[in-house]
Amino acid sequence: MRFSSYFLKILLPFVCIGFLGANMNAKQSDPEGEFYLLEGKIGQDKLLLYLEMQKTAKDYYTINAKFSDSDSYFMGQIWEQNLSFVLNEENEIKKITGSVKFDKNHFPILETKIDEKKVNFLPSTHRLNTLKFVRIEFKEKKNIEDRFGQREITYKLEDEMFFIPKSLINTQAREKINDIIALGAKDFKHLKQKIQEKHNEQRAKEWDKLSFNTEYARYFGVDYLDDKILSFKITNYQYFGGAHGNVNISPLSFSLKDGSILSNKSEDLFKDVSDPTLLDLILQALVKYDKGEDAARFLEWGGESRKNISLPSEFYLNEKGIKFIWQPYEIASYAEGFISVVLDFDSLKPFVKENSVYRYLFEK
């Protein structure tokens, strides 16, 4: 079965530490971390590494890392007493080994080995190369009595928010973006307060009415970053009982020039989302995704008989091209998770609107 990194992530158990107030059934943690954009080279090929470091204990960090042209995450841990690490890819086929040290600005510098090649990753020269984030993890139990008798139910919440600290992008753009992604927080301390207030409001609305196990999770991830655009991928998960929860993802992109939200709707990028030549390219990419099968199962999913595949309503950015992602149940079963393909900029250039804000990506 194929799962995206975010789909796997939401199936992991919640890890909650600490206590909230006097309720010994309530457990909460709000670990904070930083996102870094790092640059390295293998020969003449430049590598961009998206790195998240989250301090979850006094001298303990968890690490998530991915290359800018991939959706596959490498995960691991480091201890401050021993800054060496092994990051394993989700499918455990590849790994990154190395060590980390920090410069005078506490920016990480990685000395790594990838496919037996030594690669050093240094701070990127991009105008925006670091963001802060905070995660709130909360779990509380409740005893209820109903027609099934007395029983215990669980309420779980996991949420995270990003915040852009001072950087080389202009103040107005930074504040405008933070108004959206950080609920208008003015600094990192304020962000932690905002996310706690948001949770308290949600709990107050739902707590007395809860009658079944309930779970909410929302994850932000930097999906693409250059000197003009910052784009997030947001994963939302909800569970209200039953065989499984519901999960969906969505993009959220910003202009680093003025902080405005950029459309990720396919109809705003392409001249004609029904262009048969464009759709045939997408279908051929799905054939490759399906390891050479004829992709008929995607056209026949749900008992339908389509002549061609439909574009997802939204698109995502990738270092190599445009990424198309279908939600669970759109063209395949829930068990397959998110199905995604990437088409390079050159292949898609003839179909892109001339006035699109993303047009410069197709002119490289």
Rank of each mutant, 00 (worst) to 15 (best):
F188M: 08
Y329C: 05
N91S: 13
I153E: 10
A204C: 03
G302W: 10
F121M: 07
Q238N: 13
F345K: 10
A182T: 12
K353C: 04
L361T: 01
L128M: 06
Y61V: 02
Q81D: 11
V15Q: 07
N23L: 09
F85K: 13
F121C: 07
F121H: 06
L38P: 00
E314Y: 09
C16R: 11
N308Y: 12
R151L: 05
L168G: 02
E116L: 14
T235P: 03
L269P: 02
V287G: 04
M161N: 07
D227F: 06
L269N: 02
Y237E: 08
I42N: 09
I114M: 10
S4I: 04
L210T: 08
T97G: 02
E336M: 10
K189R: 09
L38E: 01
F232K: 01
N143D: 15
Y358M: 08
P13W: 05
Q172S: 15
P276G: 08
K288T: 09
R203A: 05
E92Q: 15
K139T: 09
F74C: 03
I249A: 08
D146E: 10
Q202K: 14
F345P: 06
N105G: 01
S255I: 11
G184I: 12
L83P: 01
Q193H: 14
K9S: 12
F138W: 04
S211D: 10
E336V: 04
V273S: 14
E330G: 00
S347L: 12
A182W: 03
Q202N: 13
K95E: 14
L317T: 04
Y155K: 03
F3V: 02
V341E: 05
N178Q: 08
T112Y: 03
V352F: 14
K288Q: 11
K58W: 11
S255D: 06
G321V: 04
K209Q: 13
D280W: 05
N355K: 12
D275F: 11
E330C: 04
K192S: 09
E32T: 15
S333H: 08
L48I: 15
E293R: 14
K186E: 13
M53T: 07
L279S: 03
A65C: 07
I93H: 04
D69N: 14
N178A: 11
N213Q: 04
K141E: 12
R135C: 08
R135A: 10
A295S: 13
T277W: 12
F121R: 03
K141Y: 08
N82T: 12
I331S: 00
A204R: 14
E314W: 02
L37R: 01
Y224C: 01
Q284V: 05
N170P: 09
R135I: 04
S29P: 07
K95S: 11
I282P: 01
I339G: 00
P13M: 04
P165Q: 06
D115F: 11
N64R: 15
D344Y: 07
I177S: 01
E197I: 15
T277K: 15
T97H: 06
E52I: 06
L262R: 07
S124Q: 04
R2M: 05
T154R: 03
K94C: 08
I63A: 10
L38V: 05
Y36W: 14
S167R: 02
A182R: 05
K323L: 13
K192C: 09
M53V: 08
E267V: 10
G98M: 03
F35R: 00
V86A: 10
L110K: 01
K320G: 12
R218S: 13
M75K: 12
E319V: 06
L47N: 00
L286Y: 13
F107N: 06
L128V: 03
A332I: 02
